[in-house]
């Protein structure tokens, strides 16, 4: 089974008006890849979303485009990425290929695909910018720093998240659109989350960092060093000429002295 995960998002300015809700171009690309792969492998696509009854419109659109089954995981509130991934994995534990958008309309964290890969114990290729088909597998291209690219050879089971410009979702036929309007949508009520992800609700606190003691012979010097933010004293410029092993050791010692290494 191939799973296409579609995040239904309401417009931030009109959160209660479902006319302005929808899915991102990235999710549309994911659905298109799922449909193309399904045709090549002779499998069916299941479109799934998490949300209230209003979210079924995107599922009907997916059915009209060619998905065979649609599942709505009922949720009237906000779930964390881990909870969404758990619910998706529970709804489709046998999914061989899972296609997700790299970002949603509300520009969330983009972390659901990674959580989902963990929950399904599947390979992951995230933030993919192009896809090539290789037998039963996929060669996914990812962006790296400096304009470089990374090619990933992905085999099932796998979760792949794609960017929005990677594919253009096909236009549904009129007959399919009419049929989808009355198609059955399976509604799943997720189990209550087994744990509360405190990281989601906890206020942001920067991690504590060990700082080196201020330098100075006298207390006043040390106070001055602290008051001057340490910029003048802690980053002493020192030019040395050493062999590579000695240079590395010297750099590590300096970093340790300045408090960057424990």
């Amino acid at each position: 089974m191939i799973l296409a995960c579609l995040k239904w998002v309401t417009h931030p300015g009109e959160p209660h008006d479902e006319r302005f809700a929808g899915i991102s171009p990235a999710d549309q690309s994911a659905l298109e890849f799922a449909l193309v792969q399904a045709a090549a492998l002779g499998l069916g696509v299941t479109a799934v979303t998490v949300g209230p009854a209003g979210a079924e419109k995107v599922l009907r659109d997916a059915l009209a485009c060619g998905a065979q089954r649609a599942v709505r995981i009922h949720s009237a509130g906000t779930l964390s990425s881990a909870e969404v991934a758990d619910a998706l994995a529970a709804a489709a534990p046998a999914a061989r290929w899972v296609w997700c958008g790299d970002y949603s309309l509300d520009r969330g964290t983009g972390s659901v695909p990674a959580y989902l890969a963990a929950a399904l114990d599947a390979q992951q290729a995230l933030g993919v910018i192009s896809v090539a088909w290789q037998g039963d597998g996929v060669v996914a291209t990812r962006r790296l720093d400096g304009g470089r690219r990374e090619l990933l050879s992905v085999a099932a089971p796998a979760v792949i998240s794609v960017e929005g410009a990677t594919a253009h979702l096909r236009r549904a036929g009129l007959g399919a659109l009419r049929a989808a309007a009355s198609a059955t949508i399976d509604v799943v009520h997720p189990a209550a989350p087994a744990h509360i992800d405190e990281a989601v609700v906890r206020a942001y606190r920067p991690r504590a960092r060990a700082l080196a003691a201020p330098l100075g012979e006298q207390p006043l010097d040390r106070l001055r060093a602290l008051a001057a933010t340490g910029a003048a004293t802690a980053t002493r410029v020192e030019t040395v000429t050493l062999a590579p092993p000695a240079a590395a050791a010297r750099i590590a010692a300096a970093l340790r002295e300045w408090g960057y290494l424990d």
Binding site: R171, A172, G173, L174, G175, A176, L177
Partner: peptide, 9 residues
């Protein structure tokens, strides 16, 4: 005729 595939109604 509509602008959809299979678009005759």
């Amino acid at each position: 005729r509509t602008d959809r595939p299979d678009g005759d109604l």
